[in-house]
Deep mutational scan, measured.
Amino acid sequence: KKKPLTQEQLEDARRLKAIYEKKKNELGLSQESVADKMGMGQSGVGALFNGINALNAYNAALLAKILKVSVEEFSP
């Protein structure tokens, strides 16, 4: 059984999803295209955005690059 995410991890996910929602049209992104760039399925990206799975440093760095932001913008 997976450990529930901490409040901090949930807040990171909320900020990440908000940045994605704000930038997806400008950058021409969908959850599917983000998933392709990350080498995972769309459901995996959804789980990161919705605070189901915790972000690790690798995925955080990859998402920051895809969204053209710094990791600190969603994970201070």
Rank of each mutant, 00 (worst) to 15 (best):
K65I: 00
L16H: 04
K24I: 01
M38V: 06
A64C: 04
G41P: 15
K24Q: 06
N50K: 07
A64I: 00
L10H: 09
Y58C: 12
K37Q: 14
L62N: 10
L63C: 06
A60G: 02
I19D: 01
K68I: 00
N50G: 08
Q7M: 13
K22E: 12
M38N: 03
F49W: 03
N50F: 00
K24S: 05
N53A: 12
A57M: 12
V34A: 04
A13C: 11
M38T: 07
S33E: 15
S70A: 11
K1P: 01
G44N: 14
F49P: 06
Y20K: 04
L62E: 13
L5T: 07
M40Q: 07
Q31H: 10
P4D: 12
I52D: 13
M38W: 02
A61I: 09
A64N: 02
A13Y: 00
E72I: 06
A54F: 03
E26V: 11
N59W: 06
K37F: 11
Y20I: 07
L29T: 01
P4Y: 14
K24Y: 08
Y58M: 12
E21K: 08
N50V: 00
F74L: 06
G39D: 09
L62A: 14
A35M: 05
E73G: 00
E72N: 13
M40C: 11
L62Q: 15
P76R: 06
V34F: 04
G51T: 00
V71L: 03
V69T: 10
N59V: 07
A61S: 14
E26F: 08
V69P: 11
D12N: 05
M40H: 04
L62I: 11
A57C: 12
G46K: 15
A54Y: 05
T6F: 00
K65A: 07
G44E: 15
L62W: 06
G44V: 11
L48C: 03
G39C: 06
K3A: 10
A54N: 07
V45M: 06
N25H: 13
K23W: 00
G46E: 15
L27K: 04
E73Y: 01
G28T: 06
L16Q: 05
L55D: 04
E73L: 00
Y20D: 06
G46T: 15
K17I: 04
M38R: 03
T6G: 07
A54I: 03
I52V: 13
A35I: 01
F74E: 05
G51P: 06
L16F: 03
T6S: 13
N53G: 06
R14D: 07
V45R: 03
N25S: 13
G46M: 15
G46V: 15
Q42E: 15
G51M: 00
K65G: 08
L67S: 09
K1W: 08
K68F: 00
A47I: 01
K68E: 14
L10M: 13
G44P: 03
N56P: 02
L10C: 01
Q7H: 10
F74C: 02
L29H: 05
S33R: 13
F49E: 06
Q9Y: 00
L29S: 03
A18L: 11
N25E: 15
A13T: 01
F74D: 04
E32N: 10
Y20R: 06
I52F: 09
R14Y: 07
N50C: 07
L10E: 10
E73Q: 08
V34H: 02
F49G: 04
L29W: 01
I52Y: 12
L48K: 04
L48D: 07
A18W: 07
Y58G: 12
L5N: 06
L48S: 03
K1Q: 07
S75C: 09
I52M: 11
S43Q: 14
A47R: 12
S30N: 11
P4L: 13
L48Y: 06
A54T: 06
N25K: 15
L16E: 02
L16T: 04
S30C: 10
K23H: 02
V71M: 05
L48I: 11
L63Q: 05
A18G: 10
F74T: 02
T6V: 03
Q31R: 12
G39L: 06
L55T: 01
E8T: 06
F74S: 04
E21M: 12
I66S: 09
I66E: 10
L5C: 08
Q31E: 13
S75R: 03
A64Y: 00
A64M: 00
N56C: 06
L29Y: 01
F74P: 03
D12P: 01
K68W: 00
A64V: 00
A60P: 02
G44S: 14
N25A: 13
L16P: 02
A61E: 14
L67E: 11
K23R: 09
K24L: 01
V34C: 03
E26I: 13
G51W: 01
M40G: 05
V45C: 05
V34Q: 03
Q7L: 04
L62Y: 06
K65H: 10
G39Q: 11
V34N: 00
K68Q: 13
N25G: 14
P76S: 03
S75F: 00
G51Q: 00
I19R: 03
D12M: 09
K17H: 10
N50Y: 03
A13N: 05
V69H: 08
L27S: 05
G39H: 10
L27W: 01
A18H: 10
P4F: 13
E26D: 10
G41K: 15
R14M: 11
D36I: 14
A54Q: 07
R15E: 00
G44K: 14
